[in-house]
Structures are given as C-alpha cells and as structure tokens.
Design a protein around this nucleic acid. Structure first.
Lengths: 359, 359
DNA sequence: GCTTTTGTTGTTACCGTGCACATCACGATC
DNA sequence: GATCGTGATGTGCACGGTAACAACAAAAGC
C-alpha cells in the first residue's frame, strides 16, 4: 500500500503551508511575464488569442523557469484527462505489443497518453486493474476481448466511457469492436489443411482447465473442430494440453503425441507453439513438411525465419491498433456519439513451406 | 491536437453549471451515507480511523452509487500521483517488455501505475515524450540508458524527480542506476570465443550511421573490439551494417560477408540477429557450429528452441525490473533521500550448442 | 470530580488549472 | 460623437479530492 507521506518536514519548514512543491506553477510564470494566469494558459495550449509579443514574453518566462504544466490539475478543471486506457492479457506477446504500438502511434500525435494495464490472464486482476484505470478517468477504454467478471462489466457500464473491444469480435459487444474472428481463424486453418488433402488433421492448444484461460485460443479450436465435423472428419486429433499462454515448449512437448497418433498435418493455436513443433521434429529427424505439415497462427517474426518457413494465418495487429486509434479520435473529438462500430480487419493465410503441397 | 470539447450541451442543460459529469463524487457518497466528505475519504484509503459501522455505511453508499474516486483530483490535493514513468526505446523487444513486466509486478501491489512512453530510438521523440511524462508528475522516472538530448537532460534535472537508469550502467549516472555493462557483454563474448581457440573471430551489429542509433549495441561492439585488441587480434572482422533495431534479416543478410571473410566464430549484437545467421546457414548448407560458430546476446526464447540452440549472454531483465520496482518503493516510501545506488545485475554466458567445443 | 488522553468525525483552506464571463482599448459604423 | 463590434486580456469560481487542524464524546488517570 502507498503510505501517506511522512511529515518529516513539518518542523524544518516552520511556515504553516508546506503543501506546495518547489515546482513553478502557472502563477509563477504569469508573474514573471507580467500577465494573468489565463494568458499563460492560452499560450500553453496554443489558443491563438494572444498577441505575438505577449506570447513570446510568456514563452520566455516558461523556458526560464523550466515550467511544465500539471496535467492532473488541467484534467480536473477541463474534465479531459488525455488518457486512453488499454487492457491486455500480457505485454510479452508480439501481436499485442504491435497493437499497442499502432495505437500509440496514432494517439501520440493528438497528445493522448496510453494507460496500459495487463491482467496476466487473471480474472481477479482484471477487476482490480479496471477499477484502477477508471479512477484515472480515461476518455476511452480499449479491451482485448470481453471482460470475464460480472463485477467488472458492471463497473464499466457505470463509468459511461466509450469502450472498444479489440482483437476479438465478441458476439455481444459492449460498445465498438475492431478485430477478427478467432472462430474463423480455426475454420480457415481446417479448410486450408483439408483442401490440401491431408488425411489425419490435428490441432494443438492449451488445456481449458486451470485458472488461466486462453479463450481466444479456445475459439480457434472450436472453429477448427466445427469445420472438421462439417467435412465429416473426426475431431479426436484436436489436442488440448498444457497451460496458457503457450510457448515453444508447448509445441515441442506435444510432438510425441502427434507422432503416436500419426497426424499428418497439425494446426497450432499459435506460431510459438508451431515453431516448437517444427524444431522438435528437426531434432527427431522428422521431416517438415514431408512427414508432418505444420501450420500456425499469428505470423510472428520467428516463423518467417525458421526452416522451413512457417505457414501461418496473419492478422495485421499494428493496423488494428491504428484503426482503433482513429476510431478513438473520432469518438472523442466528434460532436455526436457514433453508433457502435464493428470492424473486421480480416485475416489471411500466409503460405510458406511448412505445409506440404498437395498431390 | 486535442480540441477543446464542443459546447453542444450549453443550450440543452439550461442550468448555469453543466461542468459536472454525471459521475458521482465523494460529496454524493457523503450525503448518502450521512457523513462528511473527509470520512468517506478515510474509508476509501483505508486509514482505519473510522468506526466499523460508519465504514460499512460508507461502503454501502459507495457500492450503491458505483462511485469510483477520481485520482486526478486526489493527486492534486495530496501531491502524490501514484505514477511511475518508464521510457523505453521500444515495446517490441522481449527484454524490455520483460523489464516492464517485472517492474509492474512489484509496483502493482503498491497501487502504482506505470506510465510507459517509447521513443522508437528517436531523439526528438525523447524530448517530447519526456515533457509529456513530467506533466503527469510521476513520483519517479525510469529511463533505459541515458538521455540523448541536452534539453531533455535539463528538463529532467529541473523536475526534481528521482531518476533510475536501467539496462545500461552509464558512466555519469543522473541518479540511481540498475543494469549491466554492455561494454562488459562485448568483452565477455570476445573472451569466450578467444578462449575456445577460434582464429577468425568476428562480430556483427547495426551501422552507426543514420538517425536511429543503437548505442547499447555499439557499447557491446566497443567492448568486443577492445578485448580483441588486448589479445593482439585484428578487429577488421567486426562488421557494422544495416539499421537498428536489428532483426533476423540483419543476421541473414550478413552471412555472405561472414563466409567471404572466412569468419569461424561470430558474435551478434542480439540473439535476433544471431538466429538470422543460424537460419541462413541452415539454408546454405553451412553447418553450425562446425563451419561457423555463432553467439548472441539477450537470451531470447527463440534462441533456446532453434537447432542448434544458441549460445548467448543472458541478463535477467525481469529481475532487473523487479529490483527497480523495489528501489522505487524505498525511494518513495522512505523518510530520507537514498544516496544514489548503482546496482550491477551482472550477466552470464549460456553455453549451448551453436559454438564449437574447443580442440 | 476534574483533567488528560484517546478515538472518531467535521471544518476549512487549499492543490494548479480551465471555463464562462467581464473588462478594456480601439477602430469602424452610422 | 455615441454606439457597436472586435480582439486581447483579466477575474472569479469550480473541478474533486486531501492535509491540517478543530471539535467533541468517551475512557482513563489522578
């Protein structure tokens, strides 16, 4: 817990009001420049109602004092915090950080600041973090996928803040949503592999048990299974094991099982896992794609550089972040409330060499 | 630029003060609970000077109204923002995000919020971002390496905020520093390779030209060269080419040059680049480590899973972030100003199979 | 029984800024 | 020459909280 500050200086200062910091305020600037505080405020915000010579005088005073405006005070007065909140499961995922990157890029120009919180896939943290975020009064809040907890949803609703759900396209969106369908990812992967004539088509994902749940991955698996079923294929080669988030180890660890079950093409819930499969095959002398074809999801950089390069499904997360940023700017600047948007950024199969050519 | 909000509701509201949002304030809570605002404030912050039954009444009122305190207002009054600023070159680097992760982990428990800014290795952005950060009045500011610009340094000095430089251990630290010596990384790599009896020892890094400068990588190169020189070896196999930040492509693109120059062991400024080298060798039928030994830096996950696994130099960035968090808590909670700390988290060679065994 | 201490709650005065409105000088208009 | 913009600047107050101090009742000490 943050303790209240010690009153160490109570004696030392002597004067009654030790409440101020040493930092110059807008008042100091105004005195030095010989104008009112309001004029300084106008100069700072570039409102152009100031005579050039006055402006210069103020700017000199600002520079001399090393004055930096206090945005907390400004927010309070103007009721605009300049914060956009972003909630992620984790930062250590290249796609999510790409989205964050794209988002910042757009918002930066408008002097918005991103408040990032991540939940590490935990429901309890989700609520705590959300509460913390809302206390900062963000002008919009960006979520990856829907909220898990009921309390969290209620909080969000009560806050009356524009909500944008990204990455997932939820069935029941809270507000706006920008993303792609994970279900469709799974179906696309299954279609692709079936279309290439594989007989024993499998998939690997993390287990659905445990406190940490990767429901995005699970959606992909559902789509994959449904497509298999529609094609009259068995779904018993869809394997869920290990904990989310998946990594190389996850894929590598499942190779023995894949071989046992004589899988000839496998879709991994993530490129990271897929790369693990390829590398483990390399170690065991299993040829990819001749003996086992491998397909991933996410188009991570690593998939591009291994041998063979990984066939995968690509979603443009950076663009997703950028579009999110643009939508936010429209929402915040705009006069009227926009009706809820639902933007599908789509996905595409990147064909590389880890899946065997048909025939 | 953030435009001032439209005054669309000026007519609609009629009443003179349309300045309030719909959100409940501490005053609403106090009225509903039949206590003073101060008592509510005490309950919120858990200050324990409140009678349990009063506390319950207040908490019920808070829950009924869905009240969420406004931290901007609180910050203004208490002069504690609960913000810690973090400046990174980029988020899309696993080590930096690991450090951010460790940092958050520690600060989260104390209800601090991380304000992340990244510069994309640009000096102009650095100053802009720093100014933005300082305007939020962070209680401490964490930098990766030293600041580039003079104006930026002056700003920081004037702000009178505890500064912690991480990752690098600068020669002239501004305040505290927690990190490792990139110079030592280079020397260690050179020593390691020389100790294994290689004859033509090289290194690859990005070019020092261009607007984007990876001075951390350059430090590594300097250490590497110095060690070579001390051992009486030529440094002409230290190659700087391409733009920062380096990636797989960077390493792959330099393989022809390495082969031409008959390098038998190469140190890459980053694992990403090193992996690029290994993969390109695989494609060309060059055996690693028999024909070319490769060593990286950073111990990225990918290096662990490729074949052969990559020998590298490891720095525990997550722990680095955690220690930074702990130091911050001491600084902020503590009664007295701590004297500047300088903490070296060290580094260690991770021996794997991409470097040939001696003899 | 009176003073002192302790524990709980209330009052006042800000924190640093921006909005709405007021003011003032000055030139244009009639 | 009085009126009316118009552009530049100033004034008062509110934003939503908290620190410092005051007030008061109940318990403790003598």
């Amino acid at each position: 817990m943050r303790r209240p500050p010690g009153n160490k200086s109570a004696i030392a200062t002597g004067t009654r009001r030790a409440r101020t910091t040493g930092r110059p305020t807008i008042r100091d600037v105004s005195r030095l420049a010989g104008v009112s505080r309001m004029t300084v405020s106008r100069v700072i915000r570039g409102l152009d109602l100031v005579l050039p010579e006055t402006r210069d005088r103020v700017q000199k005073a600002i520079a001399d004092l090393g004055y930096v405006p206090d945005l907390a005070a400004g927010s309070l007065a103007s009721r605009r915090t300049g914060f956009i909140a972003l909630m992620l499961p984790t930062l250590t995922n290249a796609n999510f950080s790409a989205a964050a990157h794209g988002l910042t890029e757009v918002l930066r120009a408008a002097d918005y600041h991103l408040l990032i919180a991540y939940t590490d896939y935990s429901v309890d943290e989700e609520e705590r973090q959300l509460r913390n975020l809302l206390a900062r009064r963000p002008e919009a809040i960006v979520l990856t996928g829907s909220l898990q907890g009921r309390t969290a949803s209620r909080l969000l609703l009560a806050a009356d803040v524009p909500v944008i759900e990204i990455a997932d396209l939820p069935r029941q969106p809270i507000g706006h949503s920008i993303g792609f369908s994970n279900y469709e990812v799974g179906r696309t992967a299954a279609k692709y592999l079936l279309g290439r004539g594989f007989q024993r088509v499998g998939a690997i994902a993390s287990s659905t048990e445990g406190d940490v749940l990767d429901h995005r991955g699970e959606e992909r698996m559902r789509g994959f299974e449904d497509e298999l079923q529609q094609a009259g294929r068995p779904t018993d080669l869809v394997i869920r094991r290990g904990r989310a988030p998946v990594s190389h180890e996850h894929g590598a660890a499942l190779v023995p099982t894949l071989l046992e079950r004589k899988v000839d093409a496998v879709f991994a819930v993530s490129d990271l896992s897929a790369v693990g499969v390829v590398m483990e095959c390399q170690r065991r002398g299993i040829r990819v794609p001749e003996d086992l074809s491998v397909m991933g999801f996410g188009d991570f950089e690593i998939g591009r550089c291994i041998n063979p390069p990984l066939t995968t499904i690509h979603v443009d997360f950076k663009a997703l972040g950028q579009r999110t940023g643009q939508l936010i700017l429209e929402l915040v600047d705009g006069e009227s409330d926009r009706s809820p948007q639902r933007i599908d950024v789509g996905l595409r199969v990147i064909e590389r060499a880890s899946v065997r050519a048909p025939g």
